[in-house]
């Protein structure tokens, strides 16, 4: 009882701090809480957020995915290049399949062959970087036809809401349902919480982990489609460092790296907090690099709080 309360307080502590930050920035920079800026921030976080949705499944299942950054790069290059070759429809299909395949490869190694997730996905990060360069030959690609409907995903809008935000919100809603309400979601929690007990309950942990990575590949593919459409091109470094920002969003939301707890709602919140903090710092006139330093502090704080909650539970 009281433990829940304490944990709740800790979680709310972070929220209260965030609210204070929002107020502070709003006073200093009038533009901050205007609808157009808020939508802008949401649009900016939607790519990171999209990736974080899939990564949340992986993390709740007690694993990690550090390959999503370079996966985003490769898939963005693919979607742009294939749009030039086949047109957007087929390009999108190919990209989704490629994302699924990359995720499945991770899932095979981590889930089925039980290799260490950190090592496997770090190696995958490097591998996909190489693959990107091999594919693109080292040059940047651009969408040749400026009038294609492919532009809609990154640049369009629906009732005044940017398309990336709409896609992110819909995906978040669907995946929140999947994680919370379905058999698959329940199995993810069980495997992340206690893999042995899940196995004794007849759940095939290998398959569950495999599926989580596939999902992570799929959400990264959707993120790549948004990215390619927004930039209408792709550089070979476009997703560099994204894996850490994604993980930061997931952790900041309060999903535990130990697995077995977390939610899509929290991840959305975590990613949004990161976005508003970075935007706020920029509006207050701090140089660009400051947001990286602050992000570090926030992540440490979030992990600390998570650990504190766990420790309390163990001692009781």
């Amino acid at each position: 009882m009281s433990l829940h309360f304490a944990a709740l307080l800790r979680r709310h502590g972070l929220l209260v701090a965030f609210a204070l930050f929002l107020a502070l920035v709003a006073v200093q920079a009038e533009a901050f809480l205007t609808p157009s800026n808020v939508l802008d921030v949401l649009r900016q976080v939607s790519i990171i957020g999209m990736m974080a949705l899939g990564v949340t499944f992986v993390v709740v299942a007690g694993r990690l995915d550090l390959s999503v950054g370079s996966m985003l790069t490769l898939l963005t290059v693919i979607v742009v290049d294939r749009t030039n070759a086949f047109g957007p429809g087929l390009a999108i299909l190919v990209t989704l399949l490629a994302g699924l395949a990359a995720g499945a490869w991770n899932g095979l190694l981590v889930g089925v062959f039980r290799l260490n997730a950190l090592i496997v996905t770090l190696a995958m990060l490097s591998f996909l970087q190489g693959l990107t360069l091999a594919y693109s030959g080292g040059s940047n690609v651009n969408v040749a036809d400026g009038t294609t409907w492919f532009a809609a995903f990154g640049r369009g809008s629906l009732w005044g809401i940017p398309a990336p935000v709409v896609i992110f919100a819909l995906s978040a809603a669907v995946l929140a349902f999947v994680l919370k309400r379905t058999r698959f979601g329940r199995a993810i929690f069980a495997v992340g919480g206690n893999e042995t007990a899940a196995t004794y309950s007849g759940i095939d942990a290998r398959l569950v982990v495999f599926a989580a990575y596939c999902l992570s590949g799929l959400t990264t593919a959707i993120a790549a489609i948004i990215m390619g459409s927004r930039v209408m091109g792709a550089q070979n470094t476009i997703g560099q460092g994204y894996e850490l920002t994604v993980l930061a969003g997931v952790i900041l939301g309060g999903t535990s790296l130990l697995g077995g707890s977390g939610s899509i709602g929290r991840t959305v919140l975590g990613v949004a907090m990161l976005g508003f903090i970075q935007n706020g710092l920029l509006l207050m006139g701090y140089p660009y690099y400051v947001q990286w330093l602050v992000t570090w502090g926030i992540i440490i704080l979030a992990v600390w709080i998570d650990l504190g909650a766990k420790r309390g539970r163990i001692l009781a």
Binding site: T182, R183, R186, A187, F189, A190, G193, N194, T196, A197, A198, Y200, S201, G202, I203, G260, S261
Partner: peptide
């Protein structure tokens, strides 16, 4: 603790864990 239960989940989710198909 190691083989029987997922300690972080509630009693309800633990009871139905081997029978997810039956409860879905």
């Amino acid at each position: 603790k190691e083989q029987g239960l997922v300690l972080g989940l509630g009693g309800r989710d633990n009871i139905t864990l081997p029978h997810l198909a039956r409860f879905s």
